[in-house]
Each structure stands twice: as structure tokens, then as C-alpha cells.
């Protein structure tokens, strides 16, 4: 597919479908986030990038043999690793034995918030969430530094110098 516009739209649709998958897997909070982020913001950002860069992909000339080989090898290694995993939905799986039951037992009287996910997110794992907020913060600062900084180096004969200077102070 050469048209990047179609690629952006399809990746938005993919996000929406994965949100539906998350709903069926009982992760309503995650589905909510994925639908808002994946299908909403990231599509807008992709389109914004395409408006600034290119709308079509050039034809690639190399053969796909080597990438296919690498990918197959990695996939085989991962599948070999899953052979020891418990069955899907198994209540006796190790994941469900250690921390989660404790959260279910303690959070009704310690936190008293019906949504367990919120309770864990903001209280039991408050450090974690603070780190994530800081990551979002620094990514935002990074984008601002990259895109909205003053352009110090200007090259002569730059074909899109005019368009760049217009949006220099956003």
C-alpha cells in the first residue's frame, strides 16, 4: 500500500478493533484508553505528520527475504517460550496467585473505591503512575523542543523555508 493516508486510517481502525478485543477480555479501562488514544489522537498526529512530510511511499527495491527470515526466527523463539505458559483463562495461573488476590481482599476496606483499577493505579501503584506521568511530561517537552523551537540554522536555497518560517512560534 503506497498511500500513507490509507495506512493512517487503517491503523486507526486497527486500534478501534483492538479496543473491542480488550472489552471482551474484561479490560474496560484499557479499551476506553485505546479507543480514545489509538483511534483518536494518534490518527490525528499521523495525518499532521503526513501533511508536513509526504503522502506517498516510494517503491522499495530490496527483497523481503532477509526481514522475513529474521521475523520468522524471532516469532519461533517467542512461540517456543509460550509453550510453558498456562492455558488461556486458567484461574490457577501464576499471574492470579500472587498480588491480585491481595488487592481484591484489601482494597474494599483500605481504599473503598469500587473501580479496583483506579485504586491500584492511583494508590497502591502511585509511584508507578507518577513515573508514567513524568514520561508523558518529558515526551511533551521533547516534542515542543523539536518542533516549536526557534530555527537558528537556516540554509540558503531551502525549498520550504517560507513554510517553516510561518509556523516558527507555535
Amino acid at each position: 500500500m503506497r498511500s500513507l493516508f490509507a495506512v493512517a486510517m487503517l491503523s486507526g481502525a486497527f486500534s478501534l478493533l483492538s479496543a473491542l478485543l480488550f472489552v471482551t477480555l474484561d479490560a474496560v479501562d484499557v479499551a476506553f484508553t485505546e479507543a480514545a488514544v489509538g483511534a483518536g489522537i494518534s490518527t490525528v498526529l499521523m495525518l499532521g505528520t503526513m501533511a508536513l512530510t509526504a503522502r506517498f511511499e516510494r517503491h522499495a527495491s530490496h527483497s523481503p527475504a532477509l526481514p522475513l527470515f529474521v521475523v520468522t526466527l524471532t516469532g519461533a523463539a517467542i512461540i517456543y517460550g509460550t509453550l510453558d505458559m498456562p492455558n488461556f483463562g486458567d484461574p490457577a495461573a501464576p499471574v492470579h496467585q500472587h498480588v491480585a488476590p491481595e488487592y481484591f481482599e484489601r482494597s474494599p476496606h483500605e481504599i473503598g473505591v469500587p473501580n479496583v483499577v483506579t485504586g491500584i493505579l492511583a494508590s497502591y501503584r502511585g509511584y508507578d503512575t507518577m513515573g508514567e506521568t513524568a514520561v508523558v511530561f518529558s515526551a511533551g517537552v521533547g516534542v515542543m523542543l523539536l518542533l516549536s523551537g526557534l530555527r537558528r540554522r537556516k540554509r540558503k536555497g531551502d525549498p520550504d523555508e517560507d513554510t517553516q518560517n510561518k509556523g516558527g512560534k507555535a
Binding site: I41, L45, G48, L52, G167, K169
Partner: peptide
Amino acid sequence: AVMVAIHYAFVGRAPLI
């Protein structure tokens, strides 16, 4: 704020198409 700032940064550069 981060999402809006990112959006501002991207459209602030957009060439007029």
C-alpha cells in the same frame, strides 16, 4: 496539556495545503 501542546507543535509547522 501534553496532547494539546503536541497538536499545537504539529499544526504550528504545517504548510498550507
